[in-house]
Design a protein around this nucleic acid. Structure first.
Length: 496
RNA sequence: GGAGGCGUAGCUCAGCCGGUAGAGCAACGGACUUUUAAUCCGUGGGUCCUGGGUUCGAGUCCCAGCGCCUUCACCA
């Protein structure tokens, strides 16, 4: 430790001088201030005597010092505007304070709202209030904060200096509000279910493990909302939904954060076709609320959300892009070989090689060859049954499950089933582990408590899950999930 | 986990063939009561991510590590 950084020294020194003036550098209650956008909306009278007074609070983003007059740009979350501080106008104490301000400080300003000679809307301050000192230097006034890592770690600075970050945060709120309004107005009831689960079911993903001390009980953070919402269907809540955080202990990427937000809903006496119509209408409502046009650009490509969206069966797409019939066992195996997909995997516990099951290969081929073509929006429906232990089988087709996924720009955005409500079949599919998948990787996890609920009678129903973060990415043209989550998971910084 | 890229002043970035570390903004001192990224004069500011190695000499070349990004794998 040699010398303290010059900026810290300088700001700490100014803090001390402000205190010496008898001013609290950390401010306090500041009533009756207006949003900057609100002030700027007012017409500006040319007669000084007719000009209204304005009172704002905000952060100093720019400062131009011209001897006995300072021009500041004050920023709040609604906008930015100029404040003029004249030596004569603010008085001796105000002027002393003005001289010790820095970029990044928070102040209140009050005075006449008018225009300067050059026509800039300006508050001509006659009163200044110190609200908080910034002891750290702020980013460059032109370039702002660019470094991706710092933008995520110091998200508060990102919000101040990159307008699109604040804009996305506001759009995300609007998106979720739109979903709530849409569902509430159609009789859906919003609920909150536990995040701590004794069995992490409802999806195929590795869970985070935790422990309850008083009960000496291992617990898991939920990986899906599904199984509790279905219990509520049993309980007679016929239209139910939850918007909540789920946790998956897996890799982090442009499209994956370990905790993310899901919306799941269930509608008694519906099926996956009901859900397809609902999904389309719900997402179009969100597009309308956020964009005002149904043709959006995502990473340079246009997505047209105008309904009706394409619908294609899994079988048909498989045939078209993989080139073989998905029911043809030997053809699928051969195609997997030519695609250089491993036909067997090592079992995690026994270490033995296990040959992959037909449906596992089918789905790997689908992901490998079909997904990239799904620019969408497109509903892919009727999945191989073995992949869907919670889904009702198609009548007369025991190998097909009534499931669809919505793809947009190659991303899986929504997933829906005709829900399996037969407890006997449910118990069987929970017991049956697909060869080539570990229990963790499998959706089939025995949950006796859930089976018991089904045994009391769950209405036939359609169910739907939408990845809110990914939807938000698409509607705000965000390249990375970290752009729509205010605090994405990062490795903690090392000390020193 | 594999491959590739990046890491230099508070911020944003240059730095060629290996030869004394640079700019703009920010900071500090000065001039200026209508400026618009204000301007002008002057000053200070560096563990070049970390640790090794090659070399007379390394920000630069090599190796290892750390962090971030991209991509593949994984992943409803």
């Amino acid at each position: 430790m040699t010398t303290e950084p010059q900026h810290e020294v300088s700001r700490a020194e100014k803090l001390r001088r402000i205190e010496e003036l008898g001013i609290d550098p950390w401010g306090g209650r500041f009533d009756r201030h207006q949003a900057i956008a609100e002030v700027l909306e007012q017409p500006i009278a040319s007669e000084e005597s007719q000009q209204p007074r304005a009172r704002i609070a905000g952060r100093i983003k720019l400062r131009r010092i011209m001897g006995n007059v300072h021009f500041l740009h004050l920023w709040d979350h609604t906008g930015e505007m100029q404040v003029m501080i004249g030596k004569k106008q603010v008085g001796e104490l105000g002027w002393a304070l003005a001289r010790h301000l820095d970029l990044g400080d928070l102040i209140g300003a009050e005075g006449r709202f008018g225009k300067t000679k050059t026509g800039e809307p300006t508050i001509f301050a006659d009163s200044l209030t110190m609200l908080a000192k910034s002891l750290e230097p702020h980013p460059d006034k032109h370039k702002g904060l660019v470094d991706v890592e710092r933008r995520q770690r110091l998200r508060y600075l990102d919000l101040i200096y990159n307008p699109e970050t604040l804009k996305r945060a506001k759009q995300r709120v609007l998106l979720i509000r739109t979903i709530r309004q849409y569902l509430d107005s159609r009789g859906f009831m919003e609920v909150e279910t536990p995040t701590l689960h004794a069995i992490a079911g409802g999806a195929a993903a590795r869970p985070f493990i935790t422990h309850h001390n008083a009960l000496d009980l291992p617990l898991y953070l939920r990986i899906a909302l599904e199984l509790h919402l279905k219990r509520l269907l049993v309980g007679g809540i016929e239209k139910v939904y939850e918007i909540g955080r789920v946790f998956r202990n897996e890799g982090i990427s442009r499209k994956h954060n370990p905790e993310f937000t899901m919306m799941e809903l269930y509608q008694a006496y519906g099926d996956y076709q009901t859900m397809m119509d609902l999904t389309e209408a719900l997402i179009v409502a969100c597009v309308d609320a956020l964009a005002g046009t149904r043709k959006l650009t995502y990473s340079g490509r246009e997505i047209d959300f105008s309904p009706p969206w394409q619908r294609a069966s899994y079988t048909e797409l498989f045939r078209r892009y993989v080139g073989v019939d998905m029911r043809d066992v030997s053809a699928v195996r051969q195609r997997a070989e030519t695609s250089r997909l491993p036909l067997a995997v090592k079992d995690a516990t026994t270490g033995q090689m296990i040959t992959k099951e037909h449906d596992v290969l089918v789905h790997e081929l689908f992901e490998h060859h079909v997904e990239e073509h799904l620019q969408g929006p497109i509903f892919v429906y009727d999945y191989p049954a073995a992949l869907c232990p919670l889904t009702k089988r198609k009548r007369g087709h025991p190998d097909i499950a009534e499931r669809f996924e919505l793809y947009i720009q190659g991303m899986e955005l929504a997933n829906a089933y005709t829900e399996l409500n037969d407890p006997v079949t449910q118990e069987q599919t929970f017991r049956r582990q697909l060869a080539g998948l570990s229990e963790e990787e499998s959706m089939a996890k025995m949950d006796d408590d859930f089976i018991r609920a089904l045994r009391y009678g769950m209405p036939p129903a359609g169910g739907l899950g939408i990845g809110i973060d990914r939807l938000c990415m698409l509607l705000t043209d965000a390249a990375s999930i970290g752009d729509v989550i205010l605090f994405p998971l990062l490795r903690p910084e090392k000390k020193d």
